[in-house]
Simulated scan of single mutants.
Amino acid sequence: MAGLAVLLALVSTLTKLVTGYYAARRAGIAPAGRARAGIALIPRGEFNIVIAGLAVAAGTHPDLGPLAATYVLILAAFGPLAARLIQPLVTAIAERA
């Protein structure tokens, strides 16, 4: 389950980054703000834990609960770290440009 949870976390992190970047670009935000918008989405919107809880409670798929819990835990831990590390990256990119 851990490997699958990591894969799901990577895919959802990438899609959240792209979504935040795209939405911020459409709103006219500068590139640094676009990156921050994408990073801010990483630990958010994990409604799947509720769905997984319902599936486990119904007895349909008992492995779904641990998978969802691991996935959410990965994103909850990585989100604040990414937010902390994005500023030096944005500064370095701005200096190169």
Rank of each mutant, 00 (worst) to 15 (best):
T70W: 05
A57G: 13
A82K: 06
P88G: 01
L10G: 11
R44P: 06
L85T: 08
A58P: 01
T15A: 10
E95G: 15
V50A: 06
A94Y: 06
L67Q: 02
L64R: 00
R26D: 11
L67E: 04
L17H: 03
A58E: 08
I39Y: 01
N48M: 12
A35W: 00
A27Y: 02
T15Y: 03
R84I: 14
L10K: 03
V11H: 05
A32Q: 12
L10R: 04
L81Y: 01
R96P: 04
H61D: 10
F47V: 11
H61G: 12
L81G: 10
L54Y: 01
A97H: 13
I39T: 10
R96I: 15
Y71L: 04
V11I: 15
A32E: 14
I42C: 03
Y71H: 09
L4E: 14
Y71F: 11
Y21V: 12
V6D: 04
G79A: 11
T91Y: 00
G20E: 07
L54M: 09
G33T: 11
L85C: 11
I93P: 07
A69M: 00
S12R: 02
Q87C: 07
L73C: 06
I39C: 03
L14H: 01
I39N: 02
K16W: 03
R96V: 13
V72H: 05
I93S: 14
A30P: 07
I51A: 14
I93C: 12
A82F: 03
T19N: 15
V11G: 09
L73H: 01
L89C: 09
A69L: 04
V56H: 00
A68L: 04
A24L: 08
